[in-house]
Design a protein around this nucleic acid. Structure first.
Lengths: 346, 346
DNA sequence: TTGAAAGCGGTACCAC
DNA sequence: GTGGTACCGCTTTCAA
């Protein structure tokens, strides 16, 4: 048998040092890619390390260097429809840097958030992402003062302008949709907007109106309706109303895929052909969009990208790289499917 | 100013000891609710602790006691439709014990799983949950030998019978559905089953057949169809076929909500009234079920409960409590909505 | 280039 | 009941 760990449990840096005939200091230097180790000694240490299957204890290291190579996500809604895509983005960024991610669910309750935060601080997390699982809204400050622990808001924001926040570019997303509909020949675009209480609704309305004006298409206020909820039922109701107008729309821009599915159902019931009679575009590009009849063109929220950016910013902050405070808007993209007519096909 | 930490950074156990005129050993005992501390000293220590706002370093503690009060979830699909509900269950269980949860996404890639596991082991995790984000399937052994770190399979399983796994009781779920349909007066229940490659499909078929036999209702093989996928398109196709039978079904039991939505669409297109002409029940009880027309009765997977149970079992194992190996089936529940006729209303 | 040794912040054994 | 102190496993001066 080769010389190995004589200690019971895990093999430690001391075992390696012993077996390689060097001090623990030297092993540590090799581990951390320090230049001040002779090539032959370094190689001997390296060999010993994998002969013994040595793995440094992250815990011991954390205690020393006061970093844990760990970040955390605190979300108010773990089951929110947008949660997992953003989490994946964060996870991707973290994994790329060998950083682990804690997941915490606060249920939107400051007391729970506080509990999680304290525990995270005790565990030396290197950063925290506060993430909303649903539509963007302002939130209050973190339930615990974070001191010098970097943190970022993801899909939500607060009064504190100093801490960065990452949001989708709703206005630009709306422009994408309207541009596409105009190019497809639409001239009267009905806008089934989200409820009036949400920031996204206002941003998207701005994008909608600007694009029309820019293309010198008249903006008819009767064509814009704020829904009472983001649900299909509202989409159905509003689409029905809009199509009953004396001069009905030839396209519908819906602020969510759910609203759009309701609108599709309404158009079916009215016997309108999609996209021949009226084109429909949704917003969010959730998986259900592809299963509609016809498959739904939709503005995709850049959720995974947002998560990745938030993760990268946080990790950069941890490495003392400069971090830009304020709002970071990530552009949406358009997923074109069969619910909208092809360009020039009016 | 009160006597406080004189050291720069965080306040440590030594600061508390100094300020309270006791040894660090005593502070530690108070922290850990050891009985061998006098009441007056204990109180003095307690007071000092919150006067100084002292919080013990979890990292230092972990190093000593070789526990991190941390568990991990490794999933093959962070964005799977069932992922977040199970995660929430795990999170609830963990939070109740002041344990934090690492979230890792392997993308189903053993190499990534390996990377995550090594990192987790380095960080002294107290346990690992391997979780599938989609339908239950057999998986290979963990990509790294876990030694004495407890682990559990959640919504997946492996050959290794020694490690516990937590699964939904698909057979019982099917019985629930069929019982309900029979009670509602159905006599010819079409079964739009999942694809044949999935365990759930076979378990549910067994439940379906057993219930019929038990109630002495004839089992017509022509009424059971394995779908090619879990998607609505398949549900539409198969429902159409079934309704074209010489003696068509008076109820449809669908193995997923997606299949059920397809079936609903088919029935609409055929002009059949739901539930008057035919009752429909889905499986999974996803949020979309409630938005169908009519709202869909569905067998609910006990996802959050499963997550909670897995979390609790894992934590129990960490505290050396007995853990039952083998398969743990968690019962499904039935969400009754308007797509099925009321009992006795045939 | 290499190593001895002093911590990081707790815990727990053992003596008093 | 209370305290002294040797660790847990690693990093980091600083001297040789």
């Amino acid at each position: 048998m080769s010389a190995g760990a004589t200690t019971p449990g895990r093999v430690t840096i001391r075992d390696v040092a012993g077996a390689a005939q060097v001090s623990t200091a030297t092993v540590s230097k090799v581990l951390n890619h320090r230049p001040d180790v002779g090539p032959v000694v370094r190689q001997r240490v390296l060999d010993t390390i994998d002969r013994l299957g040595y793995r440094p204890s992250a815990t011991a290291r954390s205690l020393r260097v006061r970093r844990s190579d760990t970040i955390a996500i605190i979300t108010d809604d773990l089951e929110g429809i947008f949660t997992s895509a953003m989490m994946r983005g964060v996870d991707d960024a973290a994994s790329a840097f060998d950083v682990s991610v804690f997941l915490c669910n606060s249920y939107g309750d400051p007391e729970r958030e506080r509990g999680h935060l304290l525990r995270l601080l005790d565990k030396q997390v290197d950063g925290v992402i506060f993430m909303s699982g649903n539509r963007v809204r302002r939130r209050s400050a973190p339930a615990v003062a974070l001191g010098d622990v970097p943190h970022i808001f993801l899909y939500e924001y607060s009064d504190d302008e100093a801490t960065p926040c990452v949001l989708p570019d709703d206005e630009q997303g709306a422009r994408l949709a309207v541009d596409h509909l105009l190019a497809a020949g639409a001239r009267r675009i009905g806008f089934i907007n989200g409820p009036i209480g949400w920031d996204a609704s206002h941003d998207r309305l701005r994008g909608y109106q600007q694009t029309l004006r820019q293309q010198t298409v008249p903006v008819d206020p009767a064509l814009t309706v704020f829904a009472d909820s983001w649900n299909p039922e509202e989409g159905y109701r509003i689409a029905t109303d809009l199509m009953a107008l004396p001069s009905p729309p030839d396209a519908l821009f819906c602020a969510s895929d759910d609203l759009a599915t309701g609108a599709l159902a309404a158009l079916h019931d009215l016997g309108r052909a999609i996209p021949e009679d009226v084109s429909v575009v949704g917003f969010d590009d959730r998986p259900l969009a592809v299963h509609q009849h016809p498959p739904l063109t939709s503005v995709a929220l850049p959720l995974t990208t947002m998560g990745r950016i938030a993760g990268e910013m946080l990790l950069a902050a941890g490495r003392d790289e400069p971090v830009v405070p304020g709002v970071h808007r990530v552009p949406c993209t358009l997923q074109i499917r069969q619910s909208t007519a092809k360009a020039g096909s009016n």
